[in-house]
């Protein structure tokens, strides 16, 4: 069984062009359970995330939306007591397969965190960090090119062009978060996971980042966890509603917000649970 699945992955990776992503989505979760010690945080969750779209994961706090997000690039590996079962696939490959290199996985699936967390280094070094460790730049000029284009894509370049050597921690909150997005982009991932990226930002900074996501979606698949339903409604094409570890409803954003099927979703959207 195991051998078979490994061989299948190898075959698929050899010919990625043969994958029919349109039907299955770039990321898929099948019957996923997550446990923290004895505590079950995610109950039998299955859904698929389409490529080059924005998918929002919403739900009240503690519902497991961040937990499932962190499964997609195996950040949960860093928590000793966390155990994930089920089948999570990226481009058809089971990411928990022993053959999968978690470092390679995280290079393909980047992450932006709730609190902006630039390294205490210069703006340039912050963005250059990923390309450096992965050996993506062939020369110094190439590295500079990557850094500048990443900053441009993150809509930050104009603001920091003249102070690339200054510390990244000196930027404003919104700028810091965009720096973190630039840092993630610099590794050239296919998917970017965002864990409540605007929760500590003011409305203006939030608007800028939302605009940025809108422009990023042609190149990247974005999965965003948000506690703000308005934000999900504004920016996402698909929405998944989580409650107490269950995936209650998943579908087109418009349908979820205008015509939810489940009563739990209705109650949440109308503000009766939260």
């Amino acid at each position: 069984m195991v051998m078979g699945s490994i061989m299948k992955i190898q075959k698929e990776t050899a010919e990625p062009a043969n994958l029919s992503l349109a039907s299955s989505g770039i990321l898929s979760a099948q019957n996923v359970d997550v446990f923290y010690g004895d505590q079950q945080a995610i109950n039998n969750v299955s859904f698929e995330i389409p490529e080059n779209q924005i998918t929002a994961l919403i739900g009240p706090s503690g519902c497991g939306k961040s937990t499932i997000l962190r499964c997609f690039n195996r950040m949960n590996d860093t928590i000793d007591i966390c155990k994930v079962t089920g089948d999570i696939r990226f481009a058809g490959q089971n990411i928990y397969d022993p053959k999968v290199d978690v470092v390679a996985l995280r290079a393909r699936i980047g992450m932006v965190f709730q609190k902006a967390n630039p390294f205490p280094k210069s703006i340039f070094e912050n963005v250059a960090y990923g390309p450096r460790i992965h050996g993506l730049a062939s020369s110094k000029d190439h590295l500079e090119e990557i850094v500048i284009s990443s900053l441009k894509r993150a809509g930050l370049y104009k603001e920091v062009a003249d102070r690339l050597q200054e510390s990244g921690t000196g930027l404003s909150g919104g700028q810091q978060q965009r720096l973190c997005i630039a840092r993630a982009i610099a590794v050239d991932p296919q998917v970017i996971l965002m864990d409540e990226p605007c929760s500590s930002l003011d409305p203006i900074a939030t608007a800028i980042i939302e605009e940025l996501m809108e422009s990023m979606k042609q190149n990247y698949t974005i999965v965003i966890v948000t506690h703000s339903m308005q934000q999900a409604a504004r920016i996402s094409q698909k929405t998944a509603f989580f409650h107490l570890g269950d995936l209650v409803e998943f579908g087109d954003t418009e349908a979820i917000f205008t015509n939810p099927i489940q009563t739990r979703t209705q109650n949440y959207i109308s503000g009766r649970i939260g």
Partner: peptide, 17 residues
């Protein structure tokens, strides 16, 4: 065409070492 490879490469093996 985007690169979806998740298996380890020579460069990665060096880093893991």
């Amino acid at each position: 065409m985007p690169d979806y490879t998740l298996t380890t490469s020579e460069n990665l093996q060096r880093r893991h070492a």
